[in-house]
Design a protein around this nucleic acid. Structure first.
Lengths: 329, 329
DNA sequence: ATGAAAGCGCTAACAC
DNA sequence: GTGTTAGCGCTTTCAT
């Protein structure tokens, strides 16, 4: 049998479609007995509302778009978990797009989201996105948007990130307080805001504690260079401690250290991490914990709030981080 | 200004809405000049079709549902990448649900998908799902479904997996061919079909080569036991080789081995892996490569085919795997 | 407490 | 080559 609509139920029960609709949405006007008859029939024929049609009337889609630049296995899972956690009880569904780190693709996706009439947008920006102009169409359509993780600060949109500079500062401080003065820093793509912030935190900590360093102590990994920089510098530069900016880089660096027999023992490591990988290596890695999960929950909650109160303030939220010190032997 | 609809464009151009609609979809009846006028106006006012309304007529939503049990960081990213790759040029959008490994949640999601009138479903089953009965509603609604990774073989639905038994067999064979006869096997939740298949491949290889083993050589990790079994058995059982069923378990086992100073040297390892982690450990891990990406692409392509030809055959597709031998020092 | 009827934005017969 | 019209499934005003 073809799937039943409200009309079908109405016919079966000799009721008007509008009555059935009201009964199903528990409208106070409808008497209990009718509600129960309707609900029974709905259950019997496994009636499922057609959400497109419903939206069509209500001018709201129940869709939240999540736009991601790529699939970072160390970060995205926690993030999506958190977003899901927040959305699942709010009745929204999640529609996911990947920009492949291309702003051009990002622009297409923006239009796609408008076509889907999404109720809100969560976005982590592409690497080569250096403006939020293409997001303004959301603003003019009255669609709330929250940036997360990879963001550009802008008065027009809210954001949820960690305090990158502070996290890097604290991580570096940990090394210094353990009397390590010969510190290498390993960073990702130097064009990203997130990298700049973390570099800044790293440097300003070294400055503050009068620990000398040269630019040669900073290693940047981008898509082109791969791990070559890391391998060669780790072999040829003297150091007794390493600051590692992310889980991904930690996983890249760790085997190099083992291979060079520099870890454990000769070298102290501190990283900024989502808090899984540091426990899966041996010895465990002391790290500044930042939770993708928490960013996800916070961003989604903020977004939902913005959707519900149609007037809202832009805000830049920093999710807290903390030093997790693990016995490094 | 409120976002323009087809009617608005029509009014501006003194055309009929249907003409505008046809012009935008490049209908052959419409003359070139009109098409260009319409397209110019559409661009000028950034007209974006309302997909809900369009669906409403066309009886097709352009949505593919992806239902995942959880977020396995070693597998899901590749999988989603592959799915996205396949969907991106086909005009479908991806709507994602998490069952949290609960069949009850899975049932709710099934209804949710019906409400969204999705055009097709990709699903990896929850741990405690032991029947596909709740998926039959897709079948009766004429919605194609493809199971992937965590599946139950059923004449009613297609599936895309690797040949788990074969992969485990080949991995084990590698150890035996390197003269390792004292092999431990590390496996996940023993109730999962995937685990059973891999156990079976493991055992039947040992049997075939007359390598003795007892059930005590098989270690199972489930949510409750955590890594305790692994740690204690690795300390207390004699062995010179380990078969590891998955990336997740590899990451769990690796630090234990390092801590016990059993690796490298004393122990050979082989794992079944998506092919990233084995390169991020030192020494690198020889493994049977199975690609989540490829499973994603294959499953999504199969699904799209099924959507397009409304008549189709159920099929159980096995994505190929291969031994990747890495210098283990 | 229920029914009648209109309309959301779009497309596809069917005119002309 | 373009216009007219009806209708997808649902909600909501207005009437009864």
């Amino acid at each position: 049998m073809k799937r039943p609509g409200i009309k079908d139920l109405a016919k079966m029960l000799s009721l008007n479609p509008s009555t059935v609709s009201r009964a199903l949405s528990d409208h106070p006007d409808i008497k209990q007995e009718t509600k129960e008859r309707v609900r029974a029939a709905a259950r019997e024929f496994n009636y499922q509302p057609n959400l497109h049609a419903r939206f069509f009337r209500k001018k709201t889609s129940g869709l939240i778009a999540l736009i991601l630049p790529e699939f970072n296995m160390f970060f995205v899972p926690g993030l999506m978990d958190g977003i899901n956690e927040s959305l699942v009880n709010s009745g929204f569904s999640l529609i996911v797009f990947f920009s492949d780190n291309q702003i051009e693709r990002e622009k297409e996706i923006v239009n796609h989201c408008l076509s889907w009439v999404v109720d809100g947008v969560l976005i982590s920006l592409a690497e080569n996105t250096n403006t939020v102009d293409h997001l303004k169409s959301f603003k003019s359509a009255g669609i709330p948007l929250v940036m997360l993780d990879r963001v550009i600060f802008s008065p027009d949109f809210s954001s949820v990130t960690i305090n990158d500079e502070h996290a890097a500062y604290e991580a570096t401080k940990y090394l210094i307080s353990n009397d390590k003065k010969n510190i290498l820093g390993i960073f990702g793509n130097s064009n990203l805001e997130i990298t700049k912030q973390r570099v800044h935190g790293f440097k300003s900590c070294l400055d503050n504690y009068n620990v000398p360093y040269s630019d040669y102590d900073l290693i940047f990994k981008d898509a082109l260079s791969g791990n070559k920089n890391i391998e060669s510098k780790l072999r040829n530069t003297p150091y007794n401690a390493i600051f590692i900016m992310s889980d991904e880089l930690l996983m890249d660096t760790y085997p190099v250290l083992l291979k060079n027999r520099q870890y454990p023992g000769q070298v102290s490591i501190v990283s900024i991490s989502d808090g899984k990988i540091p426990y899966q290596l041996y010895p465990k890695i002391t790290h500044i914990r930042h939770s993708g999960y928490e960013i996800g929950v916070t961003a989604a909650n903020t977004l939902i709030q913005n959707i519900k109160n149609d007037t809202y303030e832009e805000q830049n939220i920093k999710v807290s981080t903390a030093l997790v010190e693990l016995e490094s032997v």
